[in-house]
Design a protein around this nucleic acid. Structure first.
Lengths: 249, 249
DNA sequence: CCCATCTAGATTGTCCGACAATCTTATCGG
DNA sequence: CCGATAAGATTGTCGGACAATCTAGATGGG
């Protein structure tokens, strides 16, 4: 019975490796996608990460699957995974679903936010500041936080997860869309409208404002040039002998 | 070329090898859940299926993950997977999301269904017949097909997949709920209302009818006894010395 | 010069066996 | 009856292996 030392202090490695291997890999990949080291459309092979991260293929494969479920990657049989890149059509589909769910989030979150509006109001103030200063990066981040506030306040884990998945798929498009200062103003005006409705306890108005905001975001994204989007699925074997490779010249 | 034995000893799996191993396993599991061989809440271990199906652990694990993503199973770290069983609270959460999405599906599908109503009308006729005859099983199946018609006609793969996932999670609850003949009549009345609105090209009415129908389904499910639901997550360690196991007596 | 075909290499899908970490269950003592 | 302990079961991760499939470069014809 003399002191069973196998206790709990084996964590000499790096930091808190309380997370599983797969989780670590998934987080590393997520970060790489977020900061642009892995660009949308880029293909990822398993071996590249087994060596780079020093983990087994099993773990990399599982991380790939998890991120695919999270909407960050897409997978095709025998062809591996790539950083998710939506086609214009998929963007439209996504925004239809998003509109319905963000609206629901507003409806569910409003009673709570109306009663405890401090966080929302402060966030709106920051948004106003960032908009006036034309700080696009900050505005983008606050924008994401704004939407997250609603969906997290809605107190519906399923709704939250579903919206988060959609948001993940849109990360880069959403980030790159606010390059024009005027767009930032427009977007922020919609935010303020929504915030005002929440303060005024106007559910219908808030839902409408959110729907309007979502539709506006869709249009902004669709106004981006083609090279931000994945090519639509090939329409079978047509005799389209057109010059494929000269198209970029 | 003599040496390397082909090792094609997978005679346990059906004949057509067109599908991948994982797909085959996933389908087998899906079928087992659907016909009740695997009951909600039942825990599934990997070994049980490696031996039973004659495939490797890797494939079983991947099939588990896939079905988890599809909403049929739930997984917890180090505790494996179980056939999905929702708590009452999760049911409410799910139906909130479902209401928003089914409504969207109605809105998107209505123009098409209004123009080509044959399938819907025929389906409605079958529903009427099944309802009158009190054929619960048939009605359940037609009910599922009814909803599938809308979400597939909506021409939005993301919406379709999302709704399918929700539907998978509800399979057994939905199936067991229509035991009372009067409930079948009520449910079918809502269906007919929806069908009529489609024929009349009344989008708002159709959406309202669908929302009503979804809410009604929620109430029917919530009226089931407790043993159909998963226990809500334990609220930490309270001194609740109450008789836990006698609760069912 | 463009295009279809084929070949070699790369990559994924699946299998096997192994071991540590963790969870579960049965056993024991108060 | 309850909590602590130990043995067994199960998952998480590793490494290697091979067939099936995909990809890209070489080849040959129009």
């Amino acid at each position: 019975m003399s002191g069973p030392l196998p206790a709990h202090t084996l964590t000499d490695m790096e930091e808190t490796d309380s997370r599983s291997t797969v989780e670590t890999v998934a987080d590393a990949l997520t970060e790489a996608v977020r900061d642009g080291r892995l660009a949308p459309g880029q293909r990822l092979t398993e071996n590249a990460f087994t060596s780079r991260l020093g983990v087994s293929r099993s773990s990399v494969r599982e991380a790939f699957r998890r991120l695919t479920a999270d909407g960050l990657l897409t997978a095709e049989p025998h062809r591996g995974v790539m950083v998710r890149q939506l086609s214009r059509n998929e963007v439209d589909n996504l925004f239809q679903v998003r509109g319905a769910l963000e609206t629901l989030a507003v409806k569910l979150a409003l009673p709570v936010l109306h009663q405890v509006p401090e966080t929302l109001v402060a966030l709106q103030a920051d948004l106003d500041t960032a908009a006036e200063q034309g700080d696009m990066n900050r505005f983008s981040e606050l924008n994401a936080r704004f939407h997250r506030l609603f969906r997290e306040t809605a107190d519906n884990p399923l709704l939250n997860e579903t919206l988060t998945r959609l948001s993940n798929s849109l990360y880069w498009l959403q980030f790159r869309v606010l390059v024009d200062r005027r767009d930032v103003f427009d977007t922020n005006r919609q935010h303020r409208q929504l915030t005002d409705c929440v303060v005024a306890d106007d559910t219908a108005g808030a839902e409408a404002a959110m729907l309007d905001h979502v539709e506006n975001a869709r249009q902004l994204i669709q106004s981006l040039p083609d090279d931000h989007f994945a090519a639509p699925p090939a329409p079978a074997k047509s005799k389209a002998k057109g010059n494929q490779r000269n198209a970029k010249a």
